[in-house]
């Protein structure tokens, strides 16, 4: 069964762009979308999710907080923080929760490093 990626962004446009880039790199992967932290947490309670792409700048709860919560639930899940807020501090905080950093706007090139790493990790876990 192919891995499932959860794309969390309050912007539909951003979800479309991320989904498109991901589909180009891994056409077989399933994609599930959430418009924020609440919906994301509900989804991970209902179904298996293998990796998460999380927008940083979201209204109710920011992406780094959500990443920390998901990290607590899924210690080995590949997580990427996606944002145009490329401040050194934000990048450092992403690293602190063991999340990758992918700058917005998301491009295939920008996402490639994270996805290939995730694919490797998921394969090794599956074996």
């Amino acid at each position: 069964m192919p891995p499932t990626a959860l794309i969390i962004d309050d912007s539909k446009l951003a979800r479309i762009v991320s989904g498109r880039a991901l589909a180009e790199l891994q056409p077989d992967w399933q994609r599930v979308e959430a418009n924020g932290a609440v919906e994301a947490l509900a989804i991970v309670n209902e179904r298996p999710v293998d990796l998460a792409l999380i927008d940083f700048n979201m209204p109710d709860k920011d992406g780094l907080e959500l990443a920390a919560e998901l990290r607590a639930l899924f210690p080995t899940m590949p997580i990427a923080i996606i944002t145009a807020n490329i401040q050194d501090e934000v990048i450092a905080r992403a690293r602190a929760v063991n999340a990758a950093f992918v700058p917005k706007p998301v491009t295939t090139e920008g996402l490639r490093g994270f996805v290939s790493g995730a694919a490797l990790r998921l394969r090794s876990r599956g074996e």
Binding site: A14, T83, I86, Q87, K104, P105
Partner: peptide
């Protein structure tokens, strides 16, 4: 349909990157 939200996201990316770079 997507106008409002797409503008917000575009602005978010542009302004964020600009401000973040300055902050850096």
């Amino acid at each position: 349909d997507i106008e409002h939200e797409a503008l917000a996201e575009t602005g978010n990316i542009i302004l964020n990157s600009c401000l973040a770079t300055m902050a850096n």
